[in-house]
Nucleic acid binder design. Structure first.
Lengths: 110, 110
DNA sequence: TTCTTATATGACCACATAATCATATAGTCA
DNA sequence: TGACTATATGATTATGTGGTCATATAAGAA
């Protein structure tokens, strides 16, 4: 199964996807969007970052189709366009927790 | 479910994990290791990169526990230490293929 | 020992990009 | 219209890091 997981054609695309998710603020934004659509201002408040910065990251996420944008009135409402993202995060979180567990075990065993 | 996927404590760790996977050559290495343990030289041949470069990326992957290292004789044998990585790649590949499909559909529909 | 092979590593460069600031655009309301 | 709010974006800076080169380390073979 692993053999077909990554053909050379997709290598760059897959890497790019991972790189998009490799920025804490972007994960924070996605995590907030997990609870439903949010305006830019709401995301600024939730993350504690600045408006231009949040806007720029949203642009990146939008360009790579990780979020959707809908303009209503004066505001822009963003939402997650592919919930599979959270599956990725869950797997990674599982990995990390397991790693921490192992570290703890190794530490107490030495 | 999404609410607990990313607590702020783990944010940096998760982002780092993703960033580690966000480099094509590293994915190429992992993809090669999916078929079993490999020496550095074998990975150099398989990827077409240089020996110092492959070694450096292996160091990174090792530091973050994505691979294991075993020295036998004159060579260092690397192998994947957590097969969950491939599950991540599969999900991302699925996303990308779906995105391409949508693009094709949108293109032919315009 | 010397020679060869295998791997790791420090110095360096080049490039990508995250963050900030200032400003532009656009919508709403009076 | 003007004032205010919400969002986007260009310019700039600073930092991180992928790649290369030269070299160091280490293990076998002669």
């Amino acid at each position: 199964m692993a053999k077909t997981a990554l053909n050379p054609q997709n290598l760059d695309s897959v890497a790019t996807r991972f790189r998009i998710l490799g920025v804490p603020l972007r994960l924070q934004i996605l995590n907030e969007l997990a609870n439903g659509e949010r305006t830019v201002t709401a995301l600024v408040d939730a993350t504690g970052s600045t408006q231009p910065n949040v806007s720029k990251h949203l642009s990146t996420l939008l360009a790579h189709r990780l979020v959707k944008r809908e303009k209503r009135g004066n505001s822009a409402y963003y939402s997650v366009s592919d919930p599979a993202v959270f599956k990725l995060c869950e797997i990674v979180c599982g990995n990390i927790e397991r790693a921490l567990e192992e570290e703890r075990a190794a530490f107490s065993g030495s």
